[in-house]
Design a protein around this nucleic acid. Sequence first.
DNA 1: TGCTAAAACTTACGCCGCTAGTTTAAGCGA
DNA 2: TCGCTTAAACTAGCGGCGTAAGTTTTAGCA
Lengths: 209, 209
Amino acid sequence: MARPRQPLLTRERIVDAASSLVDKEGLDALSMRRLATELGVQGPSLYNHFATKADIVDAVADAVIERVDLSAFGTCDWPEALRRWARSYRQVLTEHPNVVPVLASGPGRRPAALAMAEAVFGALVDAGWPPARATHIGALMRYLVTGSALGSFALGFDIDPALYDQYPHLHRAPLLAAHHEAVDEGAFQFGLDLLINGLVARHEMGIRR
Amino acid sequence: MARPRQPLLTRERIVDAASSLVDKEGLDALSMRRLATELGVQGPSLYNHFATKADIVDAVADAVIERVDLSAFGTCDWPEALRRWARSYRQVLTEHPNVVPVLASGPGRRPAALAMAEAVFGALVDAGWPPARATHIGALMRYLVTGSALGSFALGFDIDPALYDQYPHLHRAPLLAAHHEAVDEGAFQFGLDLLINGLVARHEMGIRR
DNA sequence: TGCTAAAACTTACGCCGCTAGTTTAAGCGA
DNA sequence: TCGCTTAAACTAGCGGCGTAAGTTTTAGCA
């Protein structure tokens, strides 16, 4: 086959196929040949639309970030906006768990990621936080959301009963595989409250650095 | 070559070589053939000592965790112990940045990781925190340490000046590549204070859930 | 009409993790 | 001490990977 009358591929079609492949079968299932097959095409044809596989992965990640709800930054006071944003952020990530490792390693430079950073940073600066501190707060929220979404405990944690002597406290830890989602969700909620309450307290006392 | 009179490989030698390879050249440089070459051996020989590559990576990660200082849990009150542990944890991770992505994805089930979990969880439970909450607190600290060590901003963030109109606030963000370490370090310190102060306040008010 | 660029193709290179089967030495029980 | 089992190296090879190079045909435009 040579050049078709109607292009078989577009960047959008490629990103859509890649996203659903990652969602369904995980990051490891995303190979150029596999993705091409999914699109009814030969592997190297994808390079007519993306320079590298990493570019495709970045686009998939940005498509996830695009779904995060930023509207609270226009309609709520800053603590409530942070809260709603963080919840939406985490919600989106839990809906696309296989993409989280990509998102956890560095903020994207693509449009949706930049727009999100802009919204968060802008709201905090408008609320009176110095730029450096606003950056810290945004980063902290990112750590909390991506950390809890990475499923730190999602693998479960059943330890060999033979080791109970060696790790006596862990025996009592609610680390059973059955509870993994609840642990990360609980830690997220707890951390969100601690952080935002702490920020509000400082802000109200006039400590904005 | 058949079986040598003196074994050429041991699990320890393999983990040491793998660790220094990862430290020097990154996770991607760690391949079975490359690692074997480094040890003066053919690739598949490694499978006489480890079942899979993932097992080697896990061992490398656990060797990093082994370096975290847990001594504060025996000598300080719980807030100070948490603080010292978190600082040591982050320090160790920044000394082995290439291993952080491994550590960020789920807690290990290997000895050093279990010992660390045991120490943290035990100290918190002894201080009166309910087991579920102690787990949350430990998870939160993990999010903070691994998130900031992942170098969320480590890639730098110089945005195209042509986009300043589109992202007006980011222009003012201290997101320049030159500041990346300071941003993550600052966010970590700030987050550590917020979290621990918040925990102490709750604890002193008798709110331990 | 003719030229250039786009978008598919085929082929191939050098990696990868890992399996299978071989060889020799070590260690050990009879 | 003999002989068996196991350990620890080897070689060969499978199927997959990302991607580079070059080919062919079509689209779009001067």
